[in-house]
């Protein structure tokens, strides 16, 4: 009975969404988007506040944002306040997981003993994964990726260590220190922008030539901080999930 009611409800909902977007002038057909009519055109020519005709890789310099990756320029420059909120949401959820599971003290024991290849391979591959993660968040303004994927990669490296050795425990105090350091520094950069140029999280540094590693002003700095913060938060979540209740 309930099943039928739900199917009818979803049919009605689906019909409304379909008829809303099907051959609707306001909703452009898939693939026929003209970016000149959209705000993204301003992001691509980097002319939200400045007037700019054309941006060239390796040549244009001192633009309003020097990031070669447009997604990064939106995430960490134009909508950086949004990203601060996003990082806060992740922090609160890791805090919630810690509140729910962090009080448990026991250790999860694996049902198997990790074999030789896993134990040795994990130790060999851990620095490589961590290094790739760091590379990804340092090059967030040039290549795909950034703080969030890089941070997740570092957390996945820690997870590999957990899988290989059941007695391994990450030093959570240093991760917590890195997390709070990165989070406070992000806010401080924002406040510094507010004091020096009048806008919170304003890009107060020289943006350099597009395509250089040392370019884009505060974007790489903020993305490194975001990467550290996300990495330590996800490591904290993994560590909390591996705790079990102590049998009394």
């Amino acid at each position: 009975m309930k099943r039928i009611a739900v199917i009818i409800l979803l049919g009605v909902l689906g019909f409304f969404i379909f008829s809303g977007i099907y051959s609707n002038e306001a909703f452009t057909e898939f693939g026929n988007v003209d970016l000149n009519n959209r705000v993204s055109n301003k992001f691509i020519t980097k002319s939200v506040t400045d007037e700019n005709d054309i941006v060239e890789f390796g040549k244009s310099s001192n633009l309003e944002t020097g990031s070669a990756n447009y997604v990064t320029s939106i995430v960490v420059n134009y909508r950086s306040f949004d990203t601060l909120g996003e990082v806060t949401v992740l922090f609160i959820s890791s805090l919630g997981v810690a509140l729910l599971l962090g009080t448990l003290g026991g250790k999860l024991t694996h049902k198997y003993r990790a074999n030789f290849i896993l134990r040795v391979g994990a130790k060999t591959i851990f620095p490589l994964i961590a290094l790739t993660g760091i590379y990804i968040f340092i090059h967030g303004h040039l290549t795909p990726g950034g703080g969030f994927p890089g941070g997740s990669m570092i957390a996945s490296a820690v997870l590999l260590l957990y899988l290989a050795d059941e007695n391994f425990r990450a030093k959570m105090s240093s991760f917590k220190l890195a997390e709070s350091f990165a989070g406070s520094l992000y806010v401080l950069i924002g406040i510094f922008g507010l004091l020096t140029s009048g806008y919170f999280l304003n890009n107060f540094m020289n943006t350099g030539v597009i395509g250089d590693l040392f370019s884009a002003g505060i974007i790489p700095i903020v993305y490194v901080l975001v990467g550290l913060k996300v990495g330590s938060e996800l490591t904290g979540i993994i560590t909390d999930f591996l705790k079990v209740e102590v049998d009394e």
Partner: peptide
């Protein structure tokens, strides 16, 4: 939507970067 040494010009046709940035937020 990334400027590289191959796609080195903002006059090329790029896909819209704004929805991708929003989805990045939504995934996290």
């Amino acid at each position: 939507p990334i400027l590289t040494s191959v796609n080195s010009n903002s006059a090329l046709i790029y896909v819209d970067p704004l929805p991708q940035a929003l989805v990045l937020t939504s995934i996290v």
